[in-house]
Design a binder for these strands. Structure first.
Lengths: 108, 108
DNA sequence: ACCTTTGTTCGTAATTTCACGAACTACGAA
DNA sequence: TTCGTAGTTCGTGAAATTACGAACAAAGGT
């Protein structure tokens, strides 16, 4: 689906971006970046989706490595996966910084 | 598909993230953030996809507002859409900065 | 043991994404 | 005007995404 000219970093950044590519997931990430943790139940109360759909979104974030769940019976406590969150931050920062202020560069 | 608790900014950020959510598109964006413009033909030579597929990816980036094409017959010159690129940068910067260094915050 | 709460998994359906090749369009050059 | 180059659009599948409700699993409280 890709090739060697596409770097490992681009692959990773795309993976994270994809996980961030939905308003619900963006909302969850932003919440978790502000308040350290949350429970699925609290989210379903605020969000316009049923719990099973939310569960899928959380799974996507989990699969992408951006969040992690910790059992705290009978609930599950969700937090950011700090390690990967940092990696995503670094990747995006690098990516975003990339062109900050460029006059007129070569065109091809 | 969403609701009011999800902010306009989150919607926008998610839209940009979605467009960035594929290695090919990430590659193109990174290239354009480095070299100001490129042509589709140059890309197809390097990338492992045929031109019609590339055209679709470019269209997605265009629809998301991240790039723009300018006719330069017989080719089309692609550049970043500076205005929206800046908006995306700001949105992500804001988002990424959000938790930079937090000790231990309230959990719900 | 049984019930309640919490969240996941399953089944389903509609939509979107991704990729390809073929056909088409636009435009400059011969 | 005909030809070649550059890129888009169309048609087609396969796969992934999004969403829902129903059923299920886990664990604490009664």
């Amino acid at each position: 689906m890709v090739k060697e000219i596409i770097t490992e970093e681009q692959q990773k950044a795309a993976r994270y971006a994809k996980a961030m590519g939905h308003p619900i997931r963006m909302y969850v990430l932003e919440l978790l970046s502000k308040q350290s943790c949350c429970y699925s139940g609290d989210l379903t109360e605020d969000l316009p989706i049923v719990k099973s759909t939310l569960s899928q979104h959380l799974k996507e974030l989990k699969d992408a490595g951006l969040i992690q769940g910790e059992i705290e019976a009978p609930r599950i406590k969700y937090c950011l996966n700090r390690e990967n969150w940092k990696e995503a931050q670094d990747l995006f920062r690098k990516f975003l910084k990339m062109d900050s202020e460029m006059p007129e560069q070569k065109c091809q």
